[in-house]
């Protein structure tokens, strides 16, 4: 295998490993921008993964399976919304409960789907383009959800910072009392953002069970939901940075596997630690400048809103 192919393999693997992280992180980012902290990402991803897989087994229709994943995760997110927004329960506790619920529910639903093979989501194959050295496999040889993750990142970045609706969402996240006072429906807006977060987690789950490792096994997210949550902070609530952060996290994982295979004498424990070390480092760096993090962190994050009528 020549050098160019090796680099291409490394890049393709990095993007693949990063995609579920990016999808879930972008969804959570919007949820948090509206002032709601949903720690249930891991649970919602699992529900999405099992819904996608079950639909794929039953119908063989992959677009439908992806849709099913989004709907299923949105339902779970809606439950979270009812608890925290309408019934005003504590967001942290409810989010944790949601993760545990998602793990249990997906395992229960998935019991009959263990060990069943499906046709997976295939990468694009554009004659000519996909065969180009290096850029072929990296740019034109990925599966549709990879492109979706990039497109959605750009769309969310534009929406949050260039549209009036995005401004309203940010206003709700910064100061819900003020937003309420000038007449914005705070609770309704937060519901929508929570549902969007659910849909994105569903996509991330669908990516895992349809494309990344096309199978259903219990707890197959293996902690990726938690990494996505960390990514949102890592990215200081900016979509572009969340995507780059996901590539960084994915890249370190992949590079350490390749390094081991090439016999590089670095402890694999240290290499496995690197992504988390990087998160801590970035957290330290950005929090050195207090205003910097305060500008980006939604001021009302995790706070319960009680409108007084």
């Amino acid at each position: 295998m020549d050098g160019l192919d090796a680099i291409a393999a490394l890049l393709v693997a990095t993007i693949r490993a990063a995609t579920p992280l990016a999808l879930a992180a972008i969804g959570e980012l919007v949820t948090e921008k509206s002032g709601v902290l949903n720690l249930g990402v891991e649970g919602m991803m699992l529900v999405g993964a099992v819904a996608a897989f079950a639909t794929a087994v039953a119908t063989g229709n992959l677009p439908l399976a992806i849709l099913a994943a989004m709907v299923a995760s949105m339902l779970v997110a809606f439950l979270f919304g009812v608890m925290t927004l309408s019934l005003m329960s504590n967001q942290v506790a409810t989010g944790l409960a949601l993760t545990i619920f998602g793990i249990g529910l997906s395992a229960f639903v998935g019991k009959d789907f263990i060990g069943i093979p499906i046709t997976s989501l295939k990468p694009l194959d554009i004659p000519g383009l996909s065969d180009l050295p290096l850029i072929g496999p990296v740019l034109f040889g990925q599966d549709p959800l990879v492109y979706a993750s990039v497109a959605l990142t750009v769309a969310v970045g534009w929406f949050l910072h260039r549209t009036r609706a995005g401004l309203v969402i940010r206003a709700v996240g910064e100061n819900h009392t003020a937003a309420h006072a000038i007449g914005y429906p705070v609770i309704a807006i937060r519901y929508l953002c929570v549902l969007f977060g659910g849909a994105m987690s569903g996509l991330a789950g669908a990516y895992l069970s349809l494309a990344y490792t096309p199978m259903w096994v219990e707890n197959m997210t293996a902690g990726r939901g938690w990494i996505a949550l960390a990514l949102v902070v890592f990215a200081t609530w900016k979509p572009g940075r969340a995507l780059l952060g996901a590539y960084l996290f994915g890249g370190v994982t992949i590079v350490q596997l390749h390094a081991q295979g090439l016999g590089v004498e670095i402890s694999s424990h240290i290499l496995s630690m690197l992504p988390y070390l990087a998160t801590i480092l970035v957290l330290v760096l950005i929090s050195r400048d207090e205003t910097k993090i305060r500008l980006n962190a939604p001021a009302c994050l995790g706070k319960i809103f009680r409108p007084d009528f």
Binding site: A13, R16, G261, L262
Partner: peptide
């Protein structure tokens, strides 16, 4: 025998990447 440690008993994603890496390395 080329060995890659994934430092986990169970992580389908990471196991997949390790397998792909080993394949890429012959």
């Amino acid at each position: 025998v080329k060995v890659i440690w994934v430092n986990s008993w169970y992580d389908p994603g990471k196991e997949r990447e390790a397998a792909e890496t080993l394949f890429a390395q012959g």
